[in-house]
Nucleic acid binder design. Structure first.
Lengths: 192, 192
DNA sequence: CTAGTTTCATACCGTTCGGTACATAACTGG
DNA sequence: CCAGTTATGTACCGAACGGTATGAAACTAG
């Protein structure tokens, strides 16, 4: 029965444009005008398609996790615990050292959105992070080749922490080359 | 010749109130109303005493570095390189695990202020971070008891990165106890 | 007490914020 | 062609933003 005027933009590519902006400027630093300009649509179209700024960010974060951040889930499939850790650290560098104009990790940035209105966004990011570390811990718990001297929980928390540190360093302007040196040092200390 | 009406507030305690708010909500998440309310003064008083929001943040950041963040400079006076690193990591936990309502590190938060207007603030935070790591590197370069397997630059960068990671973890809600476990694991891996 | 100086509180400035009403345009089914 | 539905562009909403003009209040020097 229905039909209606077809939308003049592709929702997925618009979401990718929104991801670029949020990734570069953070949730609080991004205005609706920034978004509509980057997405090439008007505000009513944005609201009809994505709800509001907060819901749009939710969709963007989900896309971030299965797109640029997808390496993290993939890394868990590596054969050895050792390799899982290496893939996670090196993946963090590739992710954060510079995608276009964006430096750092969208999820880490979102955790630092401190305004009262941004609390739902912050909680969302925290939940995503917790789930990610839980998945890593479970992967390590089931490993029979854990690096000596760690429990699965300890290693998962430490790897997560170092990954966060890399994201901050990247956001503060460290180059991919410098980050690689830091990662090599860390992996040498962690895994020998 | 002069005299003038005396100000009805103490500038230092007002600065401390501003620090609390900025630390909790970040630069972009804090409005002038938030600030004047917490400081107990009106906007014209704020502008007369501190310039504008951006300059006030500069003063706040400086106060943060020599107050709550002062442990970092103090740690460099420890007798051994080993002890310097331990003091930095444990200090980072005390700093970030919860001062009043604030979690995380003001400097790390400020690096993630991504809006166009906040760029001076971001640059300021980046400069402070760079200077801090340079001081640590110099301290380690002059040490004759460097932990084996690292250059001074490598160890400084890695310790800085782990410290950043701790700040993110704290901002994401990890408790002081959990952070201590992460730190113990990290120090064991780093220093044996 | 007066003149000069500085801070105070109030009220306001233009701009931008996130979000929406409304009329029109483009489509589908009958 | 017409009725119904959905998307579009424009123009607008009240609220909050960072920042300021203004006049009274509180002090010091003479």
């Amino acid at each position: 029965m229905p039909g209606g005027r077809p939308r003049a933009f592709d929702a997925d590519t618009a979401l990718d444009r929104a991801l670029e902006v949020f990734w570069r400027q953070g949730y609080e630093g991004t205005s609706l005008t920034d978004l509509t300009t980057a997405m090439g649509i008007n505000k009513p179209s944005l609201y009809a398609a994505f709800g509001n700024k907060e819901e749009l960010f939710g969709a963007v974060l989900a896309r971030y996790l299965e797109g640029p951040g997808g390496y993290a889930a993939a890394a868990l499939d590596a054969p050895t615990a050792d390799e899982v850790v290496r893939l996670l650290i090196h993946g963090a560098i590739e992710l954060t050292a510079g995608h276009g104009g964006s430096r750092g990790c969208l999820c880490v940035k979102s955790v630092h959105a401190g305004g009262p209105d941004s609390e739902p966004v912050r909680r969302n990011a925290v939940a995503v992070r917790k789930a990610g570390e839980a998945a890593l811990r479970k992967r390590l718990e089931q490993a029979d080749d854990l690096p000596p001297g760690y429990t699965a929980a300890e290693l998962a928390a430490l790897v997560h922490t170092i990954s966060d540190g890399i994201a901050v360093q990247a956001a503060a302007g460290r180059t991919r080359t410098e980050l690689s040196r830091v990662a090599d040092t860390a992996l040498r200390a962690l895994l020998g």
